[in-house]
C-alpha cells in the first residue's frame, strides 16, 4: 500500500466497481474483506446498508464512493452520517445520471436557505 494513507471504498454496479478497481483503489485485506461492493440485481438493501455501515466503521477508509441510485436505497443511513471522515461521494451510474437535488451534501447546503434558518 502506498504510504499510510486511507483507502477509497466503492459501492456500485459492476461497471463502476470495475472502473475504479482498474484505477487502483481495490483492496482485499488480511481477513479477505474487500473495500468494494458490487451491487447486482439480487443484492438486498440490508446487505448494502450493512456494507456501508461497515465501511463507516473502518478507520482505514477515507472516502466512500457510492452510486446515487444505491445511495437512494439507504438514504437514511447516509443522512445520519455527519462526520467528515470518511467522506461520502455520490456518483452517477450508467443508467442513472447524477441528480444534484438528491445529493445529501447539496441538500444540506440548500437547507441553509430554508425559513427555519432565518428564525
Amino acid at each position: 500500500m502506498a504510504g499510510r494513507g486511507k483507502l477509497i471504498a466503492v459501492i456500485g454496479d459492476e461497471d463502476t466497481c470495475t472502473g475504479f478497481l482498474l484505477g487502483g483503489v481495490g483492496e482485499l485485506n488480511k481477513n479477505r474483506k474487500p473495500n468494494f461492493l458490487v451491487v447486482e440485481k439480487d443484492t438486498s438493501i440490508t446487505e448494502i446498508e450493512e456494507t456501508f455501515k461497515s465501511f463507516l466503521a473502518r478507520n482505514d477508509i477515507g472516502i466512500i464512493l457510492i452510486n446515487q441510485f444505491i445511495a437512494e436505497m439507504i438514504r437514511h443511513a447516509i443522512d445520519a452520517h455527519m462526520q467528515s471522515i470518511p467522506a461520502v461521494l455520490e456518483i452517477p451510474s450508467k443508467e442513472h445520471p447524477y441528480d444534484a437535488s438528491k445529493d445529501s451534501i447539496l441538500r444540506r447546503a440548500k437547507g441553509m436557505f430554508s425559513a427555519e434558518d432565518f428564525r
Binding site: 500500500m1 502506498a2 504510504g3 499510510r4 494513507g5 486511507k6 483507502l7 477509497i8 478497481l21 484505477g23 487502483g24 483503489v25 481495490g26 483492496e27 482485499l28 474487500p34 473495500n35 477515507g62 472516502i63 471522515i85
Partner: peptide, 9 residues
C-alpha cells in the same frame, strides 16, 4: 488485490 492509490486526510 493491493491498493495502488491511497488518500491522505
Amino acid at each position: 488485490i493491493e491498493p495502488l492509490v491511497c488518500v491522505h486526510a
